[in-house]
Design a protein around this nucleic acid. Sequence first.
DNA 1: ATCAGTTAGATTGTATACAATTTAATTTAG
DNA 2: CTAAATTAAATTGTATACAATCTAACTGAT
Lengths: 150, 150
Amino acid sequence: MNEKDPDQLKLENQLCFPLYACAKEIVRRYKPYLDRIDLTYTQYITMMVLWEERNITVKALGERLYLDSGTLTPLLKKLEGKGYITRERSKEDERSLIVSVTETGDELKSSAADIPFGIGKCVALEPQEAVQLYTLLHKILNGFENEPEK
Amino acid sequence: MNEKDPDQLKLENQLCFPLYACAKEIVRRYKPYLDRIDLTYTQYITMMVLWEERNITVKALGERLYLDSGTLTPLLKKLEGKGYITRERSKEDERSLIVSVTETGDELKSSAADIPFGIGKCVALEPQEAVQLYTLLHKILNGFENEPEK
DNA sequence: ATCAGTTAGATTGTATACAATTTAATTTAG
DNA sequence: CTAAATTAAATTGTATACAATCTAACTGAT
């Protein structure tokens, strides 16, 4: 496990690569399901937060989704265009934009209800392995939160 | 674990989301290291395959990296522009494009030698947990390979 | 109260990703 | 052998991502 072990630069010895590839491939497999409700994957996880929170600022949404305004601003404008959300400035702090789910957006949730099950079928893990993976990923994500301020 | 359990649509109950977020955040943490050698993450994993294989067709490269020509063609043209690779049609089959690492591209490998170690520090996992994660991710990826032809 | 510093979003520019289509080369079926 | 089918890249169009910058709104220290 040397710091300069040249084998560390082999693709098969990387941890990040299977993570990257897996995430990408699973998101790709969402597409046929998401096409039916006219959402992309990023739009879908955004709606997921809104189905739960009803309304949320762009900043809080970005923290939940690990996305910044450069990604969210155009995406939220698209969701607004589809009529699934509204965007309005906060009365208390005009800098903040509050995103809220519309009735149409809410109705989408029932159409999405079978998606997690459909995706589950394409991930070839036993239930207890899925829990293991979930735990490990969240451990990494929590590690990021405790990172030193840059 | 009902097929229509509404809680399945909560972000925190998703397996794909932490996968997506983790991959994205780790790639983002590569940036300062990769900036030094003027590569993006996708260019880096491409070079990693080339450091190992010396030369490879675009098709085989795409299979290794789970990327298609729509992503690879412009990326490979950039790597060619930087002088790290060459691109030439195969003599045996003019449809195939063979990508080869140049001497300059090869020299890059030693500059990259400390990157895996640097990234390792920002992933807060014990060595045995990293192995566990590696195993689970490869199990999912292998599951994809055995998928029915569409 | 004022202005320097901070904060929230929006914007700009670059680089992926990928579906769908196109083009050229190769293979195969009749 | 030749037309049809297949294959490998390239191209086109849409949608992320994210760093860097910008703008407007708020905060805080004096």
